[in-house]
Design a protein around this nucleic acid. Structure first.
Lengths: 205, 205, 205, 205
DNA sequence: GATGAATGAGGTTTCATTCAT
DNA sequence: AATGAATGAAACCTCATTCAT
């Protein structure tokens, strides 16, 4: 019988990851020292190393955590909505709302950077991106089959453009918090509502 | 008297910045050591420090260099083309072509990350982004006045979406080099060609 | 829990300061490297930096340590002796005995030099010197009031001359260890015994 | 035939030594960089190294320069004055006046420190000190023979005390510029005028 | 399980000195 | 004779990680 419950272990891990997230978003991965994380988590180095064998493991765990969250969000939406438009609208809603988590966005950007030089992180990030892209692609294809979307467009490319609208806003907001999400989303919908949606498939947009 | 020419000094600076760019794109700013840069530039630390008083200065110079290049590109296009559509097309052409510079893209992403924690870099990046956004906004506004673009749209938001389509592709390409630019651009044009352009201002798109 | 005792921490500090003193006296402050101190203290750099955040802090701590010692010595003497002559004699005894600590003297001289260019050290040294001078001045004034010392003399100036007789001997001994303290002290006493002490307050001197 | 005159060479040397003195007095030997000296002398490193093969040589030259000056001063006084008292008075006058050269004093203190760890400088300084001491000793002995000074005193020790009164004041003034030389000298004279001078050899004192 | 003092390799930067011009 | 760009060893300091308690 383990001396501490599974729940305790998991709570400690989360405590450390939260602390790390706070640090990473402020100073970046490589500017954050283990001592920073320890201080933020109010834990000793020895304790932290019991849960993560190296700093790199914390980074990897962080990618994984954010990846899982993203997938879960999409799954949840898909489970609840069935109409293509509704799914897209809801996903947009959910993901754009995620932008309010400034710290999370900063960590994401940090991960983009990390993935440039860190094989392991890159692979995780790539998988994450391609999962989302695939989900979008499937939605587009489904819509094309049902005559809702212009069948001449490459659904993969469309998915990538949709991805970009998230990624790009994360970056722009990080540089200028004042950017308003509302008009941005409206602009996107207007642009997609044109050629994208055949005839009047969409009403207001 | 070995008073060296201005050109020589400038060449050395460029030599160092190029070396730094190569290193940064491979290992990231903070993973790159000065020794790495020195080795890449085939220069001694002392020589490098003659041109940049600190590692941070190299980073700052790099932001500035990329910023200047971006601005120059837009200016050049504006000087040569006068029709709104032509300008946008040409800018898209030029900027999407820039994506072929894989190293440059990696450095850009590195800069996005750096700007999260580095005031100075953030400010430079912010200015860069807002310069581009303003340029786009002006173009959109001009087009709206001439009845080419839907006047209901917030030109700033549209400009931000346009920015995102560049930023987002940079990131996605960095994770997966196989992504094709052609279909991506086509998808964008299709999306913009719809609601965006009033009536038949654009034919094929 | 390896929460170490206060005494241990203090012992480590002393261990480092002792090591530093040994190094400084041999090579001077700026010729002594942190590695030298670490080697002498048989400690790693990391350990040393746990106790002193910079080399400069070690220097400052050293001034303070010597300053405190000096003050303590005078206080002790004052507490035990009450007759002016006895106090002066005892102080002379104690301070001239301190000259036997060759290493300490070398560090003192190092500090004199350091105080030329180091604001912080200068201030500490200045305070130290003025504390001693004030103590002497008070003693002289007291003696003047009691008719033991020529009241025409500026007590501050006399105190400064007394200081000099210590400082000057420190320097001269550092250049030539053979210098004998006995005759030196005798000469001083003879000189002071003349005009200094009114009438036959002092017999032999 | 040399391309430049001997005078030119000597002038350059002096130019460098002056610059070095200015730097040394402000930052200390080891805090002063060759670049500092070059800048102060308005000369290039190459030029400086033509006259001094190493930084250490500049330091050594500086000791020598100050040593020579000191000796010259004493010689000059001895040449002009013949009465013991006059010589001593004049030497005191000259040396205490030297204290006005704040920069020179700072360099002296720097040299005291340097001599702790630098064999070569130590030897030069030792010789300097012993030259002065010997000069004083001779004067004292002469005075003792002529019944002017208490023959029981060790003339060497007396000379050392006299030295101290200079050294000690240099140090004290360096820590506190406000110290007044007048009363200090008076105090010394009063002290020496007592036992030191037999009967009424000295009038005013 | 937890602590935190200690380690030590390695990072950034400086600076005495050289040498091609 | 003079210049000053370049060198590179070595300095100070940091920080991921370990391990005795």
């Amino acid at each position: 019988m383990p001396k501490v419950t599974e729940a305790h272990l998991e709570a400690r891990r989360k405590q450390i990851l939260d602390a790390a997230g706070a640090c990473f978003s402020q100073k970046g991965f490589h500017q954050t020292t283990m001592q920073d994380i320890c201080a933020q988590a109010e834990l000793s180095p020895g304790a932290v190393y019991r849960y993560f064998s190296a700093k790199e493991e914390i980074i990897a765990a962080m990618v994984d955590e954010r990846r899982r969250e993203g997938i879960a969000l999409i799954q949840a939406v898909k489970r609840e909505r069935h109409d293509t438009l509704d799914v897209l609208d809801e996903i947009a809603e959910v993901f754009f709302n995620r932008l309010e988590d400034v710290q999370g966005c900063a960590v994401d950007i940090e991960l983009w950077s990390e993935s440039q030089s860190n094989r392991r992180v890159k692979e995780l990030m790539r998988r994450d991106a391609s999962d989302v892209t695939e989900a979008f692609t499937a939605i587009i294809q489904h819509a094309q089959k049902h005559g809702e979307v212009n069948p001449d467009l490459d659904p993969l490319a469309v998915a990538q453009v949709m991805n970009s609208s998230f990624y790009g806003l994360i970056l722009q907001k990080s540089l200028d918090t004042d950017i308003e999400i509302g008009p941005y989303v409206q602009a996107i919908k207007a642009m997609m509502g044109g050629t994208f949606w055949l005839k009047g498939a969409r009403k207001g947009a």
